[in-house]
């Protein structure tokens, strides 16, 4: 730390230690990113202490949520979050990969480009607007058309029992699916574009059809990147707040039926935190937030490591 350059002229005011001061300032700002992350975990852990002390592990296994009695079990929210995200992801993944393949391998360049930018544009629409559409357009459609159909033809399954409310788990799955498809598609597209031409040409030269080329050369090469995209999509899905809150029905119950209303971790925070009735109530909500934070941190770190691994192999060359 003792590199003092002897620039004697005082032409530049403050240039004597300018570089060190500058480095210090920029480091301070850059370091604040780490600080924010630490502050998040520590602050939320501290705020949720009352609930942690009171309930311990029973918090995540209990399914009774009663603000009046002061009983807080988070299982219905954890269940709702996991079920809605995984179901949405299960449907969104093949659709996204299919669309990304269509854009990169099948469509004429201009059409592919147009679809890609449309998808990217739609990824920018805020959650609350998806929710607005979900609650005023999609939910009535589900209630009047889709759910009666499901009940009539598949009503023997436990998944389609109950009354058609419109809002509920099915609506949440639909809206999450619609919202994560753009992000999964555009990352998958980037990954597929990174597949070297020589790999594809080799497959074609061996007499492979287009699909065989995709299966033999493109997909294996992009596998870990696509997995990263899917995991990132999961992170998005599990943290999705506004749109889900507006269509899931907000009832803390565990039901096998997709038609039944449910609740998710972010939704209960969104609905109850501002009006938390007691110290314990807000601590319980804070603890749900902490659980959510830890889950998304794990998901994001895993996804970043995977995607970094892919893009580091070819960090040269610009995007597109």
């Amino acid at each position: 730390m003792s590199h003092e350059e002897h620039i004697q002229d005082s032409g530049f005011a403050g240039s004597f230690n300018g570089d060190r001061i500058f480095k210090g300032i920029t480091l301070g700002f850059a370091f604040s990113v780490i600080l924010v992350l630490l502050l998040m975990v520590a602050g939320m852990a501290h705020e949720s202490l009352p609930a942690l002390r009171q309930f311990g592990w029973k918090f995540v296994s209990g399914s009774d949520w009663d603000a009046v009695q002061g009983n807080f079990g988070a299982l219905p929210f954890i269940w709702g979050s996991i079920v809605s995200s995984l179901l949405a992801l299960a449907v969104a993944t093949p659709l996204s990969v299919g669309t990304a393949l269509f854009i990169t391998e099948l469509a004429p360049r201009k059409l592919g480009g147009a679809i890609a930018s449309l998808v990217e544009l739609l990824a920018a629409i805020p959650s609350v607007i998806y929710g607005l559409w979900g609650v005023l357009v999609m939910a009535p459609w589900l209630q009047q058309t889709v759910e009666p159909f499901l009940m009539e033809h598949f009503g023997f399954l436990p998944f389609f029992r109950g009354a058609p409310y419109g809002v509920g788990m099915l609506a949440a799955v639909f809206i999450i699916m619609i919202m994560i498809i753009p992000i999964v598609t555009s990352i998958t597209k980037e990954v597929l574009l990174a597949v070297p031409l020589s790999q594809k040409e080799a497959a074609i030269a061996l007499g492979a059809t287009k699909w065989e080329m995709i299966r033999m050369a493109v997909l294996p090469y992009g596998r870990s990147g696509i997995l990263g995209a899917v995991i990132l999509g999961l992170g998005r899905a599990i943290g999705e707040t506004m749109a889900v809150t507006m269509v899931i029905g907000n009832t803390p119950q565990i039901s096998l039926s997709l038609l039944a209303p449910a609740y998710t971790m972010p939704s209960v925070i969104a609905n109850e935190f501002a009006e938390a009735s007691s110290k314990l109530h807000s601590a319980a909500l804070m603890e749900i937030g902490l659980i959510l934070l830890v889950i998304t941190l794990i998901i994001n770190i895993a996804a970043r490591l995977l995607i970094w691994g892919v893009t580091r192999q070819q960090s040269s060359g610009g995007r597109k």
Binding site: M44, G239, T296, N300
Partner: peptide
């Protein structure tokens, strides 16, 4: 340190925005 910060920034951008709200609430 730079790559740690870079990594943290990427992770931070994946944190659900409602969590950021909770943090601003406590702060």
């Amino acid at each position: 340190l730079a790559s740690v910060i870079r990594f943290c920034a990427d992770v931070l951008s994946g944190v659900p925005s409602i969590i950021t709200g909770l943090v601003a609430y406590t702060l």
